[in-house]
């Protein structure tokens, strides 16, 4: 693969990766958010495969495919199943719609989009030393990974639906994985395996907790979790 084509593809992949995070912030329908998240997983996998092909490391390509299966397949599937479980017994009620939408985020969508713009600039500012250490096409795209981390954190903090928070957490994690790929072509295999396994389990745990929350509170609105305070 020629260098310029590699740079081009890398930039396009990173752009798609970042764009997916922004669209998650933009959309209100949880189903749409999960779809976009799956697309981001595809972009992440493509990034890994691209780096593997460029460095001619087959293990990295394998990791990329594994990551794709996990982040574009398994995790969205889990979240979607939780979403389906939330809505299946609510069809007849007026509340059915509110469970699947992020109706009242803490910060409204327009403001959060502008905040995302600021967060992206912040990510660029913060990652200057990282890029300066070894300027290559991959490390130059590092801000993208950090920006997705920050946007994920922002989603986690401002969204009021339990499942939207789960997606925020997963965005955060995607961002970190992308950072790892861009900076060092991925962490060692054993760590990568452990991390993926942990993330999968964390999402399983959150999925089950969502169900329990619905059983206990009758809703998955985080604002209703206010019994514990000082």
């Amino acid at each position: 693969m020629s260098d310029s084509l590699y740079t081009q593809l890398l930039d396009v992949t990173c752009g798609a990766f970042l764009l997916a995070a922004v669209i998650v912030l933009w959309r209100r329908e949880l189903a749409a958010i999960v779809r976009v998240f799956a697309l981001q997983g595809v972009a992440l996998a493509a990034l890994a495969v691209l780096l593997g092909a460029h460095e001619e490391r087959w293990d990295l390509i394998g990791v990329g495919i594994g990551i794709g299966a996990l982040r574009a397949g398994a995790l969205p599937y889990l979240v979607r199943r939780a979403l389906a479980a939330l809505t299946e017994d609510r069809q007849g009620y007026a509340t059915g719609g509110t469970e699947t939408r992020e109706t009242q985020p803490l910060v409204n969508v327009a403001a959060s989009l502008l905040t995302a713009a600021l967060l992206t600039l912040l990510a660029y500012a913060v990652s200057r030393p990282l890029t300066d250490l070894e300027p290559t096409p991959a490390t130059r795209a590092l801000p993208v990974g950090l920006a997705v981390v920050l946007i994920g954190f922002f989603v986690l903090v401002t969204r009021r639906r339990a499942l939207a928070q789960v997606v925020g957490f997963l965005l955060l994690d995607n961002g970190i994985t992308a950072t790892a790929f861009l900076a060092t072509s991925g962490v060692p295999l054993i760590v990568e395996l452990g991390v993926s396994f942990d993330v999968l389990l964390a999402v399983l745990v959150l999925q089950i907790l969502t169900t329990r929350m619905r059983e206990a509170f009758g809703t998955t609105d985080i604002d209703d979790l206010r019994e514990l305070h000082d």
Binding site: F169, A202, R212, A216
Partner: peptide, 11 residues
């Protein structure tokens, strides 16, 4: 309360 605590804890 315990579900609330668990959720906050994990997140």
């Amino acid at each position: 309360t315990s579900v609330e605590a668990a959720w906050k804890y994990v997140v």
